[in-house]
Design a binder for these strands. Structure first.
Length: 803
DNA sequence: GTAGGGTTAG
């Protein structure tokens, strides 16, 4: 398939979830990603042509002005500049020539600089100067410069010049001031087809597909016939807003107007169908093109990529090289990288990176951002960081990619720091930023911090977005504020499947299984069809709330009633349920018989069940499987080590600890946090650093005496004296959760629940203590551990003592 | 003798 050549790329073994139904779609490991002949850079045709023209022009006796014009028109910029700098004449005409030459050859800032020089030298700009100059300002997003130029145009009385206005329309739309574009457009005394096309295209540039189409229709109502430019832009609008019906209408128009052989229109049609999710239609258009160019192929590769057809996108890239002998370009790379990310095909991704370096594609803002994204999604955070921090130029999208990479790799702290840093840059967060950062808040924050980010979202006007609301529901639920999560859900104008899945999961996290099931019924009543994720939410809910029978019923109904094949996540939830029921043999058999390869999560679930039912042998087996999968899940090892300690197998404890040390794995330091007066208070075990420390310990002492201080210390007779000492150092009496609960009890008013968040799972001793504390203090205590929320009330916990 | 609108991209 694709890029690169000088070495063969091997794709990593693909886990079952990535195998497509058709076996023919697999990538052959012996196939290089990019063919070798494509590595040879195309000899510079342009340079040779320029040389020819120069020889021709030099041999003739023509004026400098004519010579300048010829050089500019043939792209011989160096020669043009040389002639220009040696000319004695300094007319507006020759300045216009040089500004146009610079702009058309991509030297935008230089074009602006020459305009300044022109002003400095007192040469008056005219209506021919501005279109090229504005184009240059647009290209480099020189908003302020563009506005100054606009004032100058008004002063010179050129603001009704049709060419200049058309250029201004595009400039304002591209730099984010589409209202100004519209004002210019509406104020034009005479509009031509280009003016309409500029406005249609301007709305697309501004991301407003709906207004673009309105403009397209208005133009026709005004009696103007759309040309190929109008159609290409209008198709862009349909692609942007996923307006399939409008897109199809335009396709009909294309056929009626006999535009169907226009390659650019065909490309736009592929893109439109691709973005609207109609892959078959896109393929149809693509197949009808006899002479495809790279852009057509790229549009098709992009279509497959956005429609989750990663293998097809690779196959398409191969076909482009093998059948059409075309060389992949930067856009090909950019379109393929998401497919690498989807398949976690790191080798392919690296091969593309290597190819890009060899071809001299880097540095390139979009390509580098796509690489950050790919490395992040393939779990290579270091590579993503290396890419991002070495980028010469970054925009909001690159920042979003890096923030998302941190979040996806469990580094919420770094993600939050980056989000703070963003404020020091010239960027304002957009929808994507919030969608990426909210999971980090879900991981780390408490309700007040969550509310702060929520109000920031409202301030920037993103609160009505379904996309963002879904992320907010999850964040509030994970922060412990289920009520606000539900409030947001209820107030949403448009709820999609993800909204329903999220609210069902929200209740699952808090152990309210019955509510999850009620919500599922409501969802069905509203005609929303569940998907695989819905069942992950539902089965988790059944598992957390101990609803074993209901869980089995939903698991069986997936395939039977909804045609959904259970995935590894569903098997994981069922295993949690079996673990809760206590039949470990059945759980083990369930793993042996399941049709998918067990993952670390599956073995982790068995390990948790073994811990709960004190089966050390099975726990060892589960941990060995986790080890064989090369998974660095610290929790598994700590769990086993604790089990060994509980039965007094101290040598084994030491062995696990030593092994962890050798592997460079550190035991996560447990900490619990409580919010009080908008401040977050953090406690570690035996913490005495808080201001109210004395009071906290006094309260803890009173409580402990009431619930029986030694009641939950494991049987000490099993311990060796030295180990007993060690154990006492870490006595559950002073565990961070209890310190946090004590602090919560004295700092919150009676009647309100005490909310504590913990970074690791709650231990059995503290779980028992929390139940007792809720009983004797008559307070609701809510402890969110790394997986679920425990609601302690009247001596009972919502998890029914299984977690 | 000069100028403006278009395809694929995170």
């Amino acid at each position: 398939m694709f890029p690169i050549v000088s070495f063969h790329v091997h794709i990593k073994p693909i886990t079952p979830r990535f195998i497509l139904p058709k076996a023919s779609k697999t990538i052959q490991s012996h196939e290089p990603i990019i063919k070798s002949q494509n590595l040879k850079s195309a000899t510079s045709v342009k340079k040779r042509r320029a040389k020819r023209i120069k020889t021709l022009v030099d041999s003739r006796n023509i004026s400098s002005t004519r010579r300048l014009l010829t050089y500019v028109e043939s792209g011989c910029l160096e020669d043009a500049l040389h002639v220009f700098e040696n000319m004695s004449d300094s007319s507006t005409f020759i300045w216009n020539m040089i500004i146009r030459g610079l702009t058309n050859n991509g030297f935008f800032q230089e074009a602006i600089d020459y305009y300044h020089r022109m002003q400095f030298e007192g040469v008056k700009a005219d209506c021919f100067t501005f279109p090229s100059l504005i184009k240059a300002c647009t290209a480099v997003f020189a908003t302020v410069e563009g506005q100054k130029v606009h004032s100058r145009i008004i002063k010179l009385g050129l603001d009704s010049d049709i060419y200049t206005c058309n250029a201004l329309i595009l400039m304002y739309a591209k730099v984010g001031y589409v209202k100004d574009s519209n004002e210019i457009f509406e104020g034009m005394p005479v509009k031509d087809l280009v003016s309409w096309n500029s406005m249609i295209s301007g709305y697309v540039l501004a991301g407003d597909g709906r207004r673009s189409l309105t403009c397209f229709n208005k133009m026709q109502a005004d009696g103007l016939k759309p040309d190929r430019f109008s159609i290409i832009s209008a198709l862009g609008a349909c692609a942007l807003g996923h307006f399939l019906l409008n897109g199809k209408e335009i396709h009909c128009q294309v056929i009626r107007r006999r535009f169907q052989l226009d390659l650019m229109i065909q490309t736009s049609l592929i893109d439109m169908y691709g973005k609207c999710g109609l892959v078959k239609y896109a393929e149809g258009v693509c197949n009808s093109i006899s002479q495809k160019n790279v852009v057509v192929w790229n549009a098709m590769i992009g279509t497959y990529a956005v429609n989750d057809k990663s293998f097809e996108s690779f196959a398409c890239a191969r076909e482009m090289q093998e059948n059409d002998n075309l060389i992949p370009d930067i856009v090909t790379m950019i379109n393929l990288l998401p497919s690498c990310a989807k398949l976690e095909a790191l080798a392919q991704g690296k091969a593309i990176h290597g190819y890009a370096i060899r071809k001299g594609f880097l540095p390139h803002l979009v390509l580098e951002t796509a690489l950050v994204d790919m490395y992040g999604k393939c779990g290579r955070l270091k590579l993503a960081e290396g890419m991002f921090f070495h980028m010469k130029e970054r925009n909001l999208i690159s920042w979003n990619a890096m923030i998302a990479a941190y979040v996806q790799n469990g580094r919420a702290r770094e993600a939050l720091e980056m989000f703070q840093d963003l404020r020091y840059e010239k960027f304002f967060p957009d929808e994507m930023t919030f969608a990426s950062i909210l999971p980090a808040y879900s991981e780390k924050a408490l309700p007040k911090e969550g509310m702060q980010i929520h109000s920031y979202i409202c301030k920037l006007g993103f609160a009505t977005s379904t996309f963002i609301s879904n992320a907010l529901i999850y964040m509030y639920a994970k922060c412990g504020d289920l009520q606000t999560a539900k409030k947001i859900f209820d107030s949403m104008l448009f709820k999609d499947l993800i909204s329903w899945n999220t609210i069902i999961l929200a209740y699952a996290i808090h152990g309210f299984g019955a509510s999850s099931i009620t919500l599922f019924s409501k969802m069905r009543e509203e005609g929303i069809k569940p998907n695989g994720s819905t069942f992950v939410s539902l089965l988790s809910s059944c598992s957390v709330a101990g609803m074993v029978e209901e869980g089995w019923e939903y698991f069986n109904s997936m395939k039977r009633d909804y045609g959904i094949n259970p995935g590894i996540e569903h098997y994981g939830c069922m295993l949690d349920l079996l673990g809760r029921a206590g039949n470990l043999d059945l759980a083990k058999r369930f793993i042996d018989e399941m049709p998918l390869t067990p993952t670390a999560r599956i073995w982790g679930s068995l390990l948790a069940a073994s811990r709960h039912h004190r089966n050390v042998e099975l726990a060892e087996l589960a941990r060995n499987h986790v080890l064989s999968l090369n998974h660095d899940n610290t929790g598994c090892h700590v769990l086993l080590s604790n089990m060994y300690a509980e039965v007094g197998r101290w040598e084994d404890v030491e062995q696990v600890r030593c092994w962890m040390k050798n592997q460079g794995l550190e035991n996560t330091i447990g900490c619990s946090i409580v919010e009080y007066n908008s401040n977050t208070f953090r406690f570690t075990n035996h913490d005495k650093s808080q201001i109210k420390s004395n009071m906290i310990y006094e309260v803890l002492d009173i409580i402990s005496r009431k619930i029986g201080k030694n009641q939950y210390v494991p049987d000490v007779t099993k311990f060796k004296p030295l180990d007993l000492l060690k154990k006492r150092d870490n006595a559950p009496f002073c565990h961070s959760v209890r310190l946090a609960i004590s602090f919560g009890l004295i700092s919150t008013s009676v009647g309100n629940p005490v909310l504590v968040r913990k970074n690791i799972r709650i231990c059995e001793d503290c779980h028992n203590a929390a139940k007792k504390i809720s009983e004797i203090t008559n307070r609701e205590i809510v402890v969110g551990d790394s997986k679920i929320y425990h609601h302690f009330r009247d001596g009972r916990c919502s998890c029914r003592d299984y977690w």
